[in-house]
C-alpha cells in the first residue's frame, strides 16, 4: 500500500515542493473562487449584472465630469472608451488588491482549523476578480464596435502580458498588505483611502502624456505601463512601448516574489496570532 508520507518540521521559508502542493490543492482553489462568486452574486439584488453595472456607471460619471466638463485630454480618442479601457484594468487591480489584503483575516476561522497552502486564499481572491474583469470586458468589446476601433494585431501578446502584470502587481502588493494586516489590524481601514489615492497617480482618467516631461515619474507605478500598453494595443493611441512593458513586467515580478517571501514568513506564525 502506498500512502502519502508527510513530514512536519519547523517551516522553511520557501521550497519547490510548495508549488507542487499548490497544484495538488487546485480543487480547493476552484471551490474558494466558486464560493466567492456565488455568494457575491447571491447577496446583491441584481446579481451578476453588478459586474457590468459598476464599471459602466463609473465610466458615465467620469465621462460627464472629466471628459465633458473638465475637458481632460484623451490622446485624441473619444473619452468614454479612453477612460473605460483604463477603468477596466484599474478596477481589476484595485479590487484584487483590496480583496487579497483582507483574505487572511476574512478566512481566519478556516485558517485556524484546517490545513491547506495559504497561498490559495489570495489566489482565489484574484481569480474571482478576474471573472469580473472578463464580464466587464464585454462592455469594452461593445464600445469598440460602437466607436469603430479594431485592436492592433499585437494585442494578442500585449493584452495577456498586461493582465499578467496587473495580476502580479495586485497579488504581490496584496500579499505584503495581507501580511501587515494580520499583525496590525488598523491597516485595513486606511487601505481604501490609499487605493483611491493610487487612482489619481495612475493614468486612468487622464493620459500619461499630461505630465509632459515628468511622465517618467508616473512610469514608476507599474499600473501606468499596464494601462498605457492596453490602450496602445486596443485603441492604437500610440506605438507600443515594449520597453515600458518589460520594465513593468520585471518590477511586478520582483514585487510578486517579495510578496510571497513576506507572506511565507508571516504564514509560519499566522495561526498563532489570529
Amino acid at each position: 500500500m502506498s500512502t502519502k508520507v508527510t513530514v512536519i518540521r519547523p517551516k522553511k521559508l520557501f521550497h519547490l515542493s510548495d508549488l507542487k502542493e499548490l497544484w495538488q490543492y487546485k480543487e480547493l482553489l476552484y471551490f474558494f473562487t466558486w464560493r466567492d462568486l456565488k455568494v457575491r452574486y447571491k447577496q446583491t439584488m441584481i446579481g451578476i449584472a453588478w459586474a457590468i453595472f459598476q464599471p459602466l456607471i463609473t465610466m458615465v460619471v467620469f465621462t460627464v465630469f472629466f471628459g465633458s466638463l473638465a475637458k481632460v485630454p484623451s490622446d485624441g480618442i473619444p473619452y468614454p472608451i479612453f477612460v473605460f479601457t483604463g477603468l477596466l484594468f484599474w478596477q481589476f487591480f484595485s479590487t484584487a488588491l483590496s480583496e487579497t489584503s483582507n483574505c487572511l483575516i476574512a478566512n481566519q476561522a478556516i485558517i485556524t482549523k484546517v490545513y491547506f497552502p495559504r497561498l490559495i486564499l489570495p489566489l482565489s481572491s484574484v481569480l474571482t476578480k478576474l471573472v469580473d474583469f472578463f464580464i466587464a470586458a464585454i462592455i469594452l468589446a461593445v464600445m469598440m464596435i460602437f466607436y469603430g476601433f479594431a485592436p492592433q494585431p499585437s494585442s494578442i501578446i500585449v493584452i495577456p502580458l498586461v493582465l499578467i502584470i496587473s495580476f502580479m502587481a495586485s497579488v504581490g502588493f496584496g500579499l505584503i498588505l495581507a501580511s501587515i494586516n494580520v499583525k496590525y489590524r488598523d491597516v485595513r481601514y486606511a487601505l481604501p483611502f490609499f487605493i483611491q489615492m493610487l487612482l489619481f497617480i495612475t493614468p486612468v482618467i487622464y493620459p500619461a502624456s499630461i505630465a509632459g516631461k515628468y511622465s517618467y515619474l508616473l512610469a514608476l507605478n507599474p499600473m501606468t505601463g499596464a494601462i498605457q500598453s492596453a490602450r496602445a494595443a486596443l485603441l492604437g493611441t500610440a506605438p507600443i512601448n515594449w520597453e515600458l512593458i518589460g520594465i513593468s513586467f520585471v518590477a511586478c515580478l520582483v514585487l510578486l516574489f517579495v510578496g510571497i517571501y513576506i507572506f511565507k514568513k508571516v504564514e509560519r506564525y499566522f495561526a498563532d496570532i489570529v
Binding site: I8, R9, P10, V114, R268, Y269, A271, D272
Partner: peptide
Amino acid sequence: ITPPTTGEIKI
C-alpha cells in the same frame, strides 16, 4: 495548522 519550533513528525 501551526508549525513546530523544533523536532519533526512523520505521518
